[in-house]
């Protein structure tokens, strides 16, 4: 393991709404090493975006609140920072790319100004220096004719180009960590592939660590070093991408991989979906949260939360079937 730049320890985040307390994140633990790309995979409502927003301290409080935990970034606990102090960290030390490039840029401000804004604020550059640097960033993310594009408005850019602009803004101050929350979900496959290439390229040039949040395992296989699989606010499995894709252990991870059609699949082979829907996190299940949808569930699963079973230094899954005391039964 490389020297960690970010450590999330026992993070609990809840939303306090009319119906009760929605426990969106229930004890997340993970680390991101320097220059590493870590994927957080999970379905809607699994808490992956809330985790990312908590790191940035962007979750709206109220209704939500970090109940417990630590977020150590470069040796400091971000949860102890004041909003004022966070402002100097956001954009400068941690950059973020959001899902929807159509709504995350300000439509009334020229693209150039949106890039130079961060440079002037954080790097104390003069307007002229910032412009030069801004154009440089646009070139770096592969926008042709950057000088002219600099003075255009977001609506003059296509979706993929806007996402490139977002990357340019997020990386303008050379942050140590980039959080990309579903950066390609709104884009076509061809554009998605381009954006992924830009991100990888930028990582090589700038040495940024990346947290990539996605529900698409395909995207993950191409560029991530490690994968964290989240379900119902918890980590159910983590491992290197080889471990996750070649040797998945948790029934949820296996289910996700089986439910995706593959190009090398034979005609007429039905997809194996994961039945049911995720649990209601107002009343989270006591035991393993996946029990209700799991084909391998046993009695104990409903009642007691399974502990972590480790397969290697990097590979961990939480499932009773993996426990050393579990019956030696072969499941398909």
């Amino acid at each position: 393991m490389m020297e960690p730049i970010l450590q999330v320890k026992d993070l609990h985040v809840s939303f306090f709404v009319k119906g009760g307390e929605v426990q969106a994140v229930r004890g997340m633990n993970f680390e991101v090493g320097k220059g590493e790309t870590v994927a957080i995979v999970g379905e809607s409502g699994s808490g992956k975006s809330v985790t990312a927003q908590s790191i940035m301290r962007l979750i709206p409080t109220p209704p939500s609140r970090v109940k417990k935990g630590e977020i150590i970034f470069q040796g400091q606990n971000l949860l102890d920072k004041s909003m004022k102090q966070m402002e100097t960290i956001r954009g400068k030390d941690i950059g973020m790319i959001f899902q929807d490039p159509m709504t995350s840029l300000n439509p009334t401000i020229k693209v150039g100004k949106q890039i130079t804004e961060v440079l002037i604020k954080h790097q104390k550059m003069s307007a002229a220096e910032a412009k030069e640097q801004g154009i440089e960033m646009l070139k770096l993310v592969g926008i042709k004719n950057a000088e002219a594009r600099f003075n255009q408005y977001p609506h003059e850019f296509s979706g993929g180009m806007r996402q490139r602009v977002m990357i340019a803004i997020a990386l303008a101050c050379r942050p140590a960590l980039l959080i990309a929350d579903e950066p390609t979900t709104a884009l076509d496959v061809t554009i998605q592939a381009q954006i992924m290439e830009v991100m990888q390229d930028m990582q090589q040039k700038l040495g940024t660590s990346i947290i990539l949040i996605t529900h698409d395992l395909g995207v993950v296989a191409g560029m991530c070093d490690r994968v964290i699989v989240m379900y119902a606010g918890e980590v159910v499995e983590t491992g290197t991408r080889w471990e996750i894709f070649k040797n998945p252990q948790h029934p949820y991870t296996k289910g996700l991989l089986r439910s995706m059609p593959r190009l090398d699949q034979k005609k007429g082979e039905p997809l194996i979906p994961i039945i049911g829907t995720p649990p209601d996190l107002i009343k989270p299940p006591v035991g393993c949260p996946f029990t209700a949808r799991c084909s391998e569930a046993m009695h104990v699963c409903e009642q007691i939360d399974p502990g972590a079973t480790e397969f290697s230094e990097t590979h961990m899954a939480r499932c009773w079937n993996l426990h050393s005391m579990a019956k030696e039964v072969q499941f398909v």
């Binding site: 061809t190 991408r241 593959r262 190009l263």
Partner: peptide, 11 residues
């Protein structure tokens, strides 16, 4: 060629 494949070997 742009389809992401959930298999690091193929990727």
């Amino acid at each position: 060629s742009a389809i992401p494949v959930p298999d690091p070997e193929v990727e």
